[in-house]
């Protein structure tokens, strides 16, 4: 399934773009730490299966790469000088415990693959990922700083889930299997990214307007 590999690759590229951008600008202005923290929670919850079964070398190495890239981004934003000095905690104030962690839990109780603990956790990670961009969206609307969030980053992250949807449709056409949790979560996620992209373009335009 080529679409799925394109999606995985785009996801990986998005981490690299963000790391390179932070290092290049030597700051993390405009970036939401809360969004990155939620991504780490997503991967830690979903990839518990690393200890449960083996899929492939590709699968295991990608999971480890996703976790380590996110840990590295978090390290840069929170601890590594000078990058961490520019973290704007005052603007990164979306109540993520109240709305994202709890909201995803409610969604996972409503839409899930199974009631077994692992399946519930897996479904929770799908919903958590779908909502993860909200603190970044909130921050972008608040400060309209797009220096670090390049269009490549937004594009790679947004398009990655879209490619997964294409991959699920492709899979459905071949086998007739459909995972409603993944599909619904993926649709919500893609819609939120489209919204994010919309505000991103507006901020980009207004920023350029001021400099002209």
């Amino acid at each position: 399934n080529p679409f799925r590999y394109i999606a995985d690759f785009l996801h990986l590229v998005s981490f690299l773009i963000l790391i390179l951008k932070i290092r290049k600008t030597r700051n993390c202005l405009g970036l939401s730490f809360r969004t990155q923290e939620i991504y780490l929670a997503v991967f830690c919850v979903r990839y518990i299966d690393l200890f449960m079964y083996f899929v492939s070398v590709y699968n295991t190495s990608m999971k480890l790469l996703y976790i380590s890239s996110t840990v590295f981004i978090i390290y840069l934003m929170k601890f590594k000088k000078p990058y961490c000095l520019s973290y704007d905690s005052a603007s990164d104030d979306f109540p993520h415990y109240k709305f994202i962690y709890t909201g995803a839990a409610v969604l996972a109780l409503l839409v899930h693959t199974d009631l077994a603990p692992f399946e519930l956790g897996w479904s929770y990670s799908i919903w958590l990922e779908a909502l993860a961009i909200i603190p970044q969206l909130h921050m972008l609307q608040k400060i309209k700083d797009v220096e670090n969030i390049t269009s490549n980053y937004v594009g790679a992250l947004g398009v990655y889930r879209f490619f997964y949807i294409v991959s699920w449709i492709y899979k459905y056409s071949l086998t007739g299997d459909v995972c409603w949790t993944s599909l619904l979560g993926g649709i919500v996620q893609t819609i939120l990214y489209a919204d994010f992209l919309y505000y991103y373009i507006i901020s980009l335009k207004s920023g350029k307007g001021m400099s002209l």
Binding site: R4, H11, R46, V55, M62, K63, D114, A116
Partner: peptide, 10 residues
């Protein structure tokens, strides 16, 4: 069986 299905996607 505890693991009902194997999730091969990331």
């Amino acid at each position: 069986q505890y693991v009902k299905k194997m999730h091969d996607e990331l």
